[in-house]
């Protein structure tokens, strides 16, 4: 059973690779936007416990990373990476399962929402402590190198706020020392929760930091999906070719609060009405229309809506975690767990 599923996915991955990357970007971004709109309404309806964090306005930058990766690569997403996850191949239904707490989800209700991951698919489950995934991704890459694997890349995301952590610095520095094929994509959306850039760092542009780490840097307008694909795709290619870690900084705006509990009223109105506040979905729709793919866009959107509705309906009928069936074991080793449980 499991083998058949895997075979199907391998087939899917190879046919995906032949698809036009902008079509894959479009589909990933549409599926992410439609799903997150649905999650927001489920949150407001009280159907989701815990937080809901959306990638609204950041789908282009995120999707570019997911689409540029291939099977055997590793993705360590952060909280606004629904599009990147879907672009890389995370099943949409698993995202819904994580939010609704389904026992069939990758985290079985033990963890939820954006903290989901699936190591068998090369998706690391993020911890909430910002910057922590940079060195962990570096560790996966070091392990792959020690196992003599070839041609792999790891990609992780950060926000402007995460760049202030020691963990981010240590992780990028060690990746540079080891010359690992790591791409760090920083979504500079101007605010870390409510804190603006000028309370976060004093440099003019985060991209300037690339030189300090001895890594290649790439800046991009994060509201322009075609540009994101080009720049992130090139960074992934450079890493794959052996050019060491790559730092991508995309400037954009988050078009929502930090989470759905937050109205985001602190975001500067001028910034919102500037080019930085453009919605990447609208930009991409126009880009696809100008390629003569307007009808396809409409069809992909409709397909995304059907998929999302179907997934939510399916997951709503799935079992929830049961404290009486839970084994309450935090260690893999049965002996250790029994000894611990015993007291």
């Amino acid at each position: 059973m499991a083998t058949r599923t895997m075979d199907r996915e391998v087939g899917k991955a190879s046919s995906q690779a032949e698809q036009d990357p902008m079509e894959r970007m479009s589909r990933a971004m549409l599926r992410a936007r439609v799903l997150e709109d649905k999650l927001a309404s489920l949150y407001r309806a009280g159907r989701i416990v815990g937080g809901v964090y959306l990638g609204r306005g950041q789908e282009g930058l995120s999707a570019a990373g997911g689409v540029a990766l291939r099977k055997g690569d590793v993705l360590a997403p952060l909280i606004r990476d629904m599009a990147g996850r879907l672009g890389f191949g995370e099943p949409l239904v698993d995202a819904v399962r994580a939010y609704l707490g389904s026992k069939l989800g990758p985290m079985k209700g033990r963890d939820g929402n954006i903290h989901r991951g699936d190591l068998s698919r090369g998706i690391l489950p993020m911890i909430s402590h910002l910057g922590a995934m940079v060195s962990a991704t570096a560790g996966v890459l070091l392990a792959k190198r020690m196992k003599k694997e070839k041609g792999f890349v790891g990609l992780t995301s950060a926000g402007d706020g995460a760049t202030s952590t020691g963990s981010f610095h240590e992780g990028l520095n060690v990746a540079a020392v080891e010359k690992l094929p790591l791409v760090v994509v920083v979504a500079d959306n101007g605010y870390a929760y409510s804190t603006p850039n000028d309370r976060q760092f004093a440099c003019t542009d985060l991209l300037d930091r690339a030189k300090g780490y001895g890594v290649e840097g790439h800046g991009v307008d994060g509201t322009d999906p075609e540009a994101c694909w080009e720049v992130v795709g090139r960074a992934v290619q450079r890493a794959r070719e052996g050019a060491g870690p790559q730092l991508v900084v995309g400037r954009l705006l988050r078009l929502c609060g930090h989470g759905e509990h937050d109205d985001g009223l602190y975001i500067d109105k001028k910034m919102k009405s500037s080019d930085r506040g453009r919605d990447c979905m609208e930009v991409l729709r126009d880009q696809m229309k100008s390629r003569g793919l307007g009808k396809d866009w409409d069809r992909w959107e409709k397909e995304a809506q059907e998929e999302v509705e179907g997934a939510v309906k399916k997951v709503a009928e799935e079992p929830l975690p049961d404290p009486f069936e839970e084994d309450w074991r935090a260690t893999a080793m049965v002996g250790a767990a029994e000894a611990v449980q015993k007291g």
Binding site: L119, L124, A132, V134, S135, A136, T137, A138, G139, V140, L141, L142, A143, K144, M146, K147, G166, S167, E170, G171, N173, V174, V177
Partner: peptide, 20 residues
């Protein structure tokens, strides 16, 4: 390793997840 205790442990976590 560099003098980076956070990254030293973080790197080990990633490597362990990858089977080392």
């Amino acid at each position: 390793s560099p003098i980076s205790e956070d990254a030293m442990v973080g790197l080990a976590v990633g490597a362990a997840m990858e089977g080392m």
